[in-house]
């Protein structure tokens, strides 16, 4: 019980750190087009050619898989522990909606990750689908892939709207992960709740606004 929960918490925190790095890189897309294209492409080339980043990438894939698998096992066992449900249950009076529905929110995020990987990872890393061109500096034109995708209204909406469940998931997940791993300082926990809220807002709004920005640019 403790072991499984700690795995979910530890991988979750690692994914939280990853999101900060990911959003920082995505912020390049907010720059004027020529600068953004050049920077974005050279940055992604640098990532692909870096051995350390390749190792981190594998750690990332493993983290996502462990997070999902262990969370699913815990949810299954917890549902069994609960047994028969109440006919009337007003749990919104004693806890937040997201804390009660982390698995439900997680399904949307998993769906997002699958589509996201199909759109980018499969195309650029695995070379599935049409060939991706290069920019003036000879770097693979990832910017073009991104820009093309976000100019499709459905993908733009998909990438923006699904950042809402991400925000809710992160808000509960971040503070809960710290407590699972044993952070129990009372004043610290109050501060942690505020940090989690700020983090969740920055991540969901940050990631969510970029597709809109690219679409309307």
């Amino acid at each position: 019980m403790f072991f499984r929960k700690s795995i979910v918490a530890a991988t979750g925190l690692f994914l939280c750190i990853f999101l900060i790095v990911h959003l920082s890189a995505n912020a390049i897309l907010l720059l004027p087009e020529t600068t953004a294209r050049e920077l974005y492409n050279s940055y992604s080339t640098a990532l692909r050619e870096n051995l350390f980043i390749t190792l981190i990438a594998y750690l990332l894939y493993i983290s996502i898989i462990l997070h999902v698998v262990y969370a699913a096992i815990i949810t299954f066992r917890n549902t069994k522990s609960k047994g028969e449900k109440y006919k009337v249950n007003h749990n919104n009076k004693n806890s937040t909606w997201m804390s009660q529905n982390m698995g439900f929110l997680g399904v949307f995020i998993l769906l997002f990750i699958v589509v996201h990987l199909a759109n980018f990872w499969a195309k650029i890393k695995l070379g599935i689908g049409e060939d991706v061109g290069v920019d003036v500096n000879g770097n693979v034109d990832v910017y073009e892939v991104t820009s093309f995708l976000f100019h499709n209204m459905y993908f733009m909406l998909f990438y923006s709207v699904l950042m809402i469940p991400l925000g809710f998931h992160l808000y509960h997940g971040l503070k809960s992960a710290f407590m699972t791993l044993g952070f129990y300082h009372k004043k610290g926990l109050r501060l942690l709740a505020k940090i989690s809220l700020a983090y969740a807002i920055i991540m969901s709004v940050g990631f969510g606004i970029i597709p809109l920005f690219v679409y309307f640019k």
């Binding site: 929960k5 066992r77 917890n78 749990n91 004693n94 937040t96 804390s99 809960s176 699972t180």
Partner: peptide, 15 residues
């Protein structure tokens, strides 16, 4: 005893 694991919803401390 097959109690579930804590996911820190915080409902318990309210009740």
């Amino acid at each position: 005893e097959n109690f579930g694991s804590c996911t820190f919803t915080g409902a318990c401390e309210i009740e």
